[in-house]
């Protein structure tokens, strides 16, 4: 009997024995609704959360309750990857922008324009020479034409026409892109889930094709990288965290119940990450995935954090003040 069949047998039995036959390892009273809610939100102390987990694992009533409770949990909108969010709406204008950028970089400030490598003897033309463009010459036909024997004068005229046409085309592209950017920005203004960085990125990309790469890099969610790059976290949409363990390029949602905007983070190891935010929001994870709220005595907007381990961190407010803890937030000392 192969292992798979044995597994199936185990599954059959599991379906029958799990509710009541698992011996309870801990005798305790069932938790109240608020403790269950706090456990779900990840705000219980670590030892209380562990006790809850033990209890619910062995208490059929509480497990059933949690199963019902989970069904009431609103499903967070799926976190799309940066690339998926970005490329769907912008594939067309960006393809245009990339083409325009490639053409832009080549002609405007270079004195000579190479029309075609297929010409019998390459002929250079003055791209800036004034000329009256032939009425129906497009870049495509211009590229195809030179296979026929041409004079230097006609090539010069054709080159100037192509340059003029390209610039006009580029100008139209840019104005179209700017218009599209405005429309997209207006459309994006309503859903609060869109992050400001995205909007800035889009505007930047469309306004200046040459700055495309830099803009994209600047608009990407800030990453918090553990030493050696063994794990990374990033703040998404201001209130969510994504985690990429083991230096893989796969991001999954971490758990954090953050009612306030998150601003910065620090990761001293592969599984420890501190995150701070507005109104005194401080969180820490010790398993990389689940962030717990760390008590913090002030309502300051926190903008920076440094950490050396899961217990020791220094946070800074936007007013320049800083606070340090060496016991994972049980106590804080100011101004260190």
């Amino acid at each position: 009997m192969p292992e798979r069949d044995h597994d199936r047998s185990v599954e059959h039995v599991l379906r029958h024995v799990l509710p009541g036959d698992v011996p309870a390892q801990q005798q305790s009273t069932c938790p109240d609704a608020e403790t269950i809610a706090a456990w779900h939100e990840g705000t219980l102390r670590a030892e209380d959360a562990a006790a809850m987990e033990r209890h619910v694992a062995d208490c059929p009533r509480c497990r059933t309750l949690m199963a019902a409770f989970i069904q009431t949990t609103p499903v967070a909108p799926a976190l799309e990857s940066f690339w998926r969010r970005w490329h769907l709406g912008w594939a067309v204008p960006l393809a245009t922008a990339a083409t325009a950028a490639a053409l832009w970089i080549a002609p405007p400030n270079t004195p000579q324009l190479q029309l075609s490598s297929r010409a019998a003897s390459p002929v250079s033309v003055d791209a800036t020479a004034p000329a009256t463009p032939p009425p129906a010459l497009s870049p495509a036909t211009a590229a195809a034409e030179p296979s026929a024997p041409t004079s230097a004068e006609s090539l010069q005229a054709s080159g100037a026409a192509v340059t003029s046409q390209l610039r006009k085309s580029l100008s139209e592209n840019e104005s179209n892109l700017a218009r599209l950017a405005d429309e997209r920005a207006a459309a994006d203004a309503a859903p609060s889930t869109r992050i400001e960085a995205d909007k800035r990125e889009r505007a930047t990309i469309t306004a200046a094709p040459r700055a495309f790469a830099a803009a994209r890099e600047a608009a990407a969610p800030a990453e918090i990288v553990a030493p050696g790059g063994v794990a990374r976290w990033r703040i998404v949409s201001g209130q969510q965290i994504e985690w990429s363990p083991a230096a893989r390029n796969e991001w999954g949602p971490a758990t954090i119940e953050a009612p306030d905007v998150l601003t910065a983070g620090a990761a001293p190891s592969a599984t420890v990450c501190w995150i701070v935010g507005r109104r005194g929001a401080v969180y820490v994870t010790t398993d990389g995935m689940r962030f717990m709220r760390v008590p913090f005595p002030e309502m300051s907007d926190l903008v920076a954090v440094t950490a050396t381990d899961e217990r020791t961190a220094t946070v800074s407010g936007d007013d320049g003040r800083s606070w340090s803890t060496t016991d994972q937030g049980r106590t804080w000392s100011a101004g260190q």
Partner: peptide
């Protein structure tokens, strides 16, 4: 019976699930 240890909305859902079970 709400003491503020969780959000009100999560507490309400937990109470509802408790009553249901």
């Amino acid at each position: 019976y709400f003491h503020g240890r969780s959000t009100l909305s999560t507490w309400l859902r937990a109470v509802l699930a408790q009553r249901h079970v």
